[in-house]
Simulated scan of single mutants.
Amino acid sequence: MLASLADGGPVLELGIGTGRIALPLAQRGIPVSGIDASEQMLAVLQQRRGDLPVDVWVADMADFRTSAPFPYPLIYVAASTFLLLGTADRQTACLRAVAAALAPGGRFVIEAALPHTVIADGRQVLVRHVDDGQVRITIQAHNDRQSDQNMS
């Protein structure tokens, strides 16, 4: 799907990591730029990319500027990485940076899962709140007895 939205590229991936999504796009001839806060992840990507058209730099998604002389027709962030920004202020800052780097008529794609996980024995973990200082979750057990615990 991303390849069809790329309009030939180049595209920008936020939180590019080791290139799980960027490398297949680059193999299709779509130039990919990417940012990540982890130098270690980018080092792995640099080893894996070979001569593919992938350019990366260390940056914070909430405060990035591109050095590209052109806007991107597609900017994307996958695997719920956008939610790792933690606060509404950081997410808003990211959206502003994306708006500045996006071509007119371009697209910003966010892949995010619902913030809960089902655990094998019938328990469900629901994320209620996440910020820089606190995480609140609810664990629900759906066995013979019902339990509901909030933990910080």
Rank of each mutant, 00 (worst) to 15 (best):
A101C: 11
I137Y: 01
W57H: 04
L85D: 07
R28C: 12
L2M: 10
Q46R: 06
D7T: 11
V56M: 00
H116Y: 11
E111I: 15
G19E: 05
I139F: 05
G50R: 07
A99N: 07
V127N: 02
V58R: 05
T81W: 01
T92R: 02
I137H: 09
V118G: 09
R48D: 02
G15H: 04
G50A: 02
A3D: 14
A93C: 01
G9V: 03
L25A: 09
P115N: 03
H142F: 07
V127T: 15
L42K: 00
G29S: 13
L14S: 03
A26E: 03
W57N: 03
C94R: 06
L25I: 08
A78N: 12
G29I: 14
L84N: 12
P31K: 11
N150W: 02
Q47A: 14
P71Y: 00
P10H: 06
L95I: 13
Y76R: 14
S147T: 15
T66F: 03
E39L: 00
V32F: 02
V130R: 07
W57C: 02
L5G: 13
Q149G: 05
Y76K: 14
S33W: 06
A3K: 14
T81V: 08
D55N: 10
I139M: 10
L14M: 12
G17N: 01
Y76F: 13
H129P: 15
A99Y: 01
L23Y: 11
Q146R: 11
G15D: 07
Q40Y: 01
D131K: 04
N143S: 15
L42Y: 00
V109P: 12
S152C: 04
T92E: 01
G105T: 10
I16T: 05
L126I: 15
H129E: 12
Y72E: 07
G19H: 04
D144A: 13
R123S: 15
A97E: 11
G34M: 01
L52H: 08
Q46V: 15
A97H: 06
L102F: 08
V11E: 05
C94S: 08
L102Y: 02
Q40C: 00
A100N: 10
F70P: 04
L84S: 09
Q27S: 13
M61D: 02
L114A: 10
V98P: 02
M61L: 04
I16V: 11
P10K: 03
L52T: 05
S33A: 09
I137N: 10
I119H: 06
Q146K: 12
V44M: 01
S4Q: 15
L42F: 01
V125Q: 05
T92P: 00
T66R: 00
D132Y: 00
V44H: 02
I137M: 08
L84D: 15
T138H: 02
V109G: 13
V127R: 04
T138A: 09
M151S: 01
P10C: 08
